[in-house]
Amino acid sequence: MNARHSLGRSFRGLVENDLDIMPLMNLFVALIPMLLISAVFLNVTVIEMNAPPEGMADDQEQKAVEPLHLAVTIREDFFVIEGNKLDKSVIDRRDDDPESALAAALAAVVAAHPGNRDVMIISEARTRYDEIITVMDVSRAAGLPSASLLGAE
């Protein structure tokens, strides 16, 4: 206490110093642009693919076997839904909002065959990748999460 008293005058004479944060600032200024450059702001996700059922690549027309083998064919102007024990249905892509019509048709199939989770998406050679992904999304939303891709003859 006495010692403090004796130093009192010299304490009063000292200038209060802030913490020197300039080196830390320099570090941050270098780090942040580097992280901003390498940061990924796009949410990239994936769609898992399945191999098509055995033999289906060769005889897509043969629908007499037991499983449903639900298939959505993407034609230039139509979506065609077909499968075993299913009436073939055709959706005109030139209509307004053909994806909703496809979703409704697939939802009806899922309601009629609740055990089926698979769908084959058959595309023509010139079908755009974007269209295939759209049909996969519609199928997944309709309750068919397991999609496989096939090429049309």
Binding site: A125, Y129, L149, G151
Partner: peptide, 12 residues
Amino acid sequence: QGDRDISFEVLE
């Protein structure tokens, strides 16, 4: 990673 405009032929 396929571009949205590629054809199924290439993807296949």
